[in-house]
């Protein structure tokens, strides 16, 4: 962290909500990737708060085409630049979890299968926040969103979080990593590694959203750390399919994490138990990926 450059390639003046986790990740990523970078954005919060015409917080080239095609658009940029003799440029897509786990997964899978030479970053804030907090495949069990409201019959999301990093590992790409804004050293190291490798690189970075999760804006980083501690988010990386766990979760009670957030406020003990059970299983699954 001490070695990061002071220069901001993603400037202040952007219009993210106070306490937003995403710009913490973007600032760091841009410091790692440097000026020889082109960025692609699908429709998401970052598209809007990072640039609203004619203003733009990014000092590097910026392209938006559509929502569901981030991986292929980044690939198209990279292939075009390569043909023009600019193959050394980093091309990075910054997509949200809805744009990745749901509508964007077809293009993502295609680009991964072709081992396109791009970095794909999914900033995971566990719902469609830009459109006003609707559930995505990445929304955790029990969470209130505007499309999983707390009703008399059904309260919150009944289903569980989709495990996209594992899907990406199954594509046999050079690099897949999970990270969190709450663990800067680990995140920075992974961003650096992603920058320096060739081929398809996928990072899913956990970035809490105070507006959508209903918590005090000061607690963004704290909650990111707690998610790792309780096992709802595991930090690992897979290099050429070989998985390393970067931080063994403390398996603190999920309940401690849940009670700080308005999106979980309605949850019954039974629901919290279900989420706890899922966290336990997740750790079993994730740790089983490591082959001794």
């Amino acid at each position: 962290m001490k070695d990061l450059p002071d220069e901001e390639l993603f400037t202040a003046g952007h219009t993210a909500c106070p306490g937003c986790g995403c710009p913490i990740m973007v600032r760091a990523a841009m410091k790692i990737f440097g000026p020889n970078t082109v960025c692609y954005f699908p429709a998401n919060c970052l598209l809007v708060f990072g640039a609203t015409y004619p203003q733009d917080a990014f000092k590097v080239p910026y392209l938006h085409v559509l929502f569901e095609n981030s991986a292929v658009c980044a690939s198209g940029i990279k292939r075009g630049l390569k043909k023009l003799g600019k193959g050394d440029v980093n091309v990075v897509a910054f997509a949200g979890d809805g744009g990745t786990a749901d509508i964007g997964i077809q293009a993502l899978s295609g680009a991964a299968e072709r081992n396109e030479d791009i970095i794909y970053i999914c900033y995971d804030n566990e719902a469609y926040m830009n459109t006003g907090i609707q559930r995505s495949g990445s929304t955790p069990h029990g969470a209130w969103t505007t499309t999983t409201p707390v009703g008399k019959k059904i309260a919150g999301k009944e289903l569980y979080k989709k495990d996209v990093p594992r899907i990406m590992i199954a594509h046999d790409v050079p690099y897949v990593a999970t990270a969190s804004i709450g663990h800067p050293a680990d995140m920075l190291r992974k961003l650096e590694k992603a920058r320096d490798l060739k081929g398809f690189r996928y990072l899913q970075i956990f970035a809490p959203c105070p507006t959508g999760w209903r918590f005090d804006t000061a607690k963004t980083v704290q909650l990111a750390k707690m998610a790792v501690d309780c096992g709802l988010w595991t930090l690992y990386e897979a290099e050429d399919g070989k998985v390393t766990i970067n931080k063994k979760p403390k398996m603190t009670p999920v309940k401690d994490y849940v009670k700080l957030q308005g999106r979980f406020r309605h949850m019954t003990d039974e629901q919290i138990d279900s989420l706890q059970e899922w966290a336990n299983k997740k750790w079993e699954r994730d740790s089983a990926m490591v082959i001794e």
Binding site: A51, T52, Y53
Partner: peptide, 14 residues
Amino acid sequence: LWPEDPMIIGSFSP
């Protein structure tokens, strides 16, 4: 989209 000549293309426009 050349880093030596940055520009913004397709951004959210009012």
